[in-house]
Amino acid sequence: VLLSRDRGLLRRREIWAGAYVYSDRPQEQLRDILGRFAPALAPWTRCTACNGTLADADKHAVSDRLEHGTQQAYDVFAQCTACARVYWRGAHHGHLETIVADAVREFGDAAA
């Protein structure tokens, strides 16, 4: 399913399942999508690049994929089991965690 603010893209015949996202503000977009589609919520379990499953990763096992500053500052990592992309709880994580927690609190029971 493609979610987009581009109506022209959504009209293409190659797109067989799509929905227009009304707001241009990310928090409003999240509320809109959760309210309309009620997907099952499983935060921090999927890769944002390929949608593969994330698994805990040992810092030493992924160190060759990290910038030096990231290696120094963080100890907990996850890695996509499909594309091998590495994730960590960076500086923006606290803000994202608040958004996700609010969404789970508001829509978690309805989506389950």
Rank of each mutant, 00 (worst) to 15 (best):
L66H: 13
D24G: 03
E28I: 10
W44L: 03
P39W: 15
L41Y: 13
A19G: 03
T48L: 10
A40C: 14
L41G: 11
Q71G: 14
A40V: 15
R25N: 00
S63C: 10
R12P: 04
N51W: 04
S63W: 10
C83M: 00
P39K: 11
R13C: 09
L41H: 11
R5H: 05
L3V: 06
A49G: 08
G8R: 04
Q27F: 03
L3Y: 13
H60V: 12
D56G: 13
N51A: 10
W44Q: 01
C47H: 08
A57S: 01
H60S: 13
T81V: 13
L9P: 04
C80K: 13
C83S: 05
D32L: 00
Q71A: 14
A19C: 02
I15Q: 06
A38F: 13
A38E: 12
T81M: 12
W16C: 08
C80L: 09
E67P: 12
A38P: 01
D6C: 01
Y20H: 00
Y74T: 12
H68G: 09
L41N: 08
P26W: 02
R46L: 14
H68P: 12
A38S: 15
W16S: 11
L9M: 07
T70F: 10
R25D: 07
A84E: 06
D56C: 09
D24Y: 02
A57R: 03
Q27R: 03
T81G: 08
A78K: 15
I15K: 05
I33T: 10
D75E: 07
V1I: 09
T81S: 08
L34I: 03
Q29S: 02
E28W: 03
P43M: 14
R7Q: 05
V76C: 07
A40K: 15
D6E: 02
L54D: 02
R25Q: 05
L3Q: 02
A73T: 05
H68W: 11
H68Y: 12
R13K: 15
A19R: 05
D6S: 01
C50I: 10
R25V: 06
R25M: 06
G35W: 04
D64R: 14
L10S: 04
D64I: 07
